[in-house]
Design a protein around this nucleic acid. Structure first.
Lengths: 196, 196
DNA sequence: AGAAAAAGAGACAGATCGTTCTATCATGTG
DNA sequence: CACATGATAGAACGATCTGTCTCTTTTTCT
């Protein structure tokens, strides 16, 4: 009666844990954030934590999955925005630059997580690899739709440059790398018809 | 008599610690490697460890410094090799690709360390920033010597692409990204006079 | 030879790590 | 009503973390 807003299925405590974990894991690194910190920040007890996640690693996986879902959602929204494929590639470049400047100022969650998990066969590294495969493949389809020559190679170029923008934005500052990133990307993808 | 080879000053145990730390920190990450592992692998006691390094962080700094010294040494050797500045730029690209493929298969030690140290004012992050400043500045001097137009911007491009090659080599495989990296770099730096 | 520094060996403190446990209470569904 | 579910609360586990300590032995310089 007092609190009628009790969402049933998805479990509110679970969502809080994932939100808090996403924030803390990204800002401070994964190994640096213990379970104590997580349950305190999410206002959840340890028992609740381990009921929803068999181990801390499962929460890390949920964190990466939520990041993955956010990016996939952004791509899906952009594709349904009605923009022409050609300008969509330019929008991706701009979106990456915006993301580095505003949202992901501490680098790429997947790259950073990989730095902490050396074993390529670990579930976390597998999920990182899957995310990167999806990203590159999505870019290739985008390049194909834009009728750019050699879409596979161009997708690899954009993956390369996006990684660079993420790392460079974190370590050198977004404003420092933004013009260089955008220029290099547009040139390497041959987006602007006219040249010097 | 039995062991006449006893290097005096630089302390053999200290060198062993740095060597072992460089290997373990790089392969497994910094937070994942405890002091126990380090002293066991270096065949050194804890007391000896803390005599040479006031804290673990000081060993991390020594690790980064040794990586920095190796790269600076490689640059110094290349500059004194008598090669013309123009082809030196091409050699740097090739050297980065070789390094990613053979030596640094787990990414860039500085990028990986930064992922584990979020505080930009921490001594480790300061040293990382210094290393990156030196690297970019050195590249700019190289571009100037090669008489390439806009050397400052071109140095930023090469920093960007080197970061990308390091990350991409680690996560996607060196063979996957090598041709893309080399082509994009040569094109973005306008190293090859002829175009399509 | 004698003094001083470096290293070996290992116990120990205090904190934090991830994880498990028992016990209690509110909730909604059968 | 009865019962399973999910959350709360908090103690406790063993392991590992960084860092300090004492004591003995070896090495190195003067």
């Amino acid at each position: 009666m007092a609190t009628p807003s009790t969402p049933r299925r998805p479990s509110e405590a679970r969502d809080r844990l994932i939100r808090v974990a996403s924030e803390l894991f990204y800002r401070e690194g994964i190994h640096s954030v213990g379970v104590d910190r997580l349950v305190a920040a999410a206002q959840v007890t340890r028992a609740t934590f381990y009921r929803h996640f068999p181990s801390k690693e499962d929460l890390v996986l949920a964190y990466l999955q939520s990041e993955d879902a956010a990016i996939q959602g952004a791509f899906a929204a952009a594709e349904q925005s009605g923009a022409e494929p050609r300008e969509l590639v330019g929008l991706v470049i701009q979106a990456v630059a915006d993301d580095v400047e505003r949202q992901h100022t501490r680098g790429c969650p997947f790259i950073n997580a990989a730095a902490e998990y050396p074993d390529p066969s670990s579930p976390i590294r597998v999920r990182i690899a899957d995310h990167r495969k999806w990203f590159r493949s999505t870019l290739e389809h985008l390049m194909k739709a834009a009728e750019l020559p050699d879409p596979a190679e161009k997708s690899r170029i954009l993956v390369l440059l996006r990684d660079a923008a993420m790392v460079g934005g974190y370590l050198d500052g977004a404003q420092t790398i933004r013009p260089t990133f955008e220029r290099t990307a547009r040139e390497a993808l041959a987006l602007d018809p006219q040249a010097a």
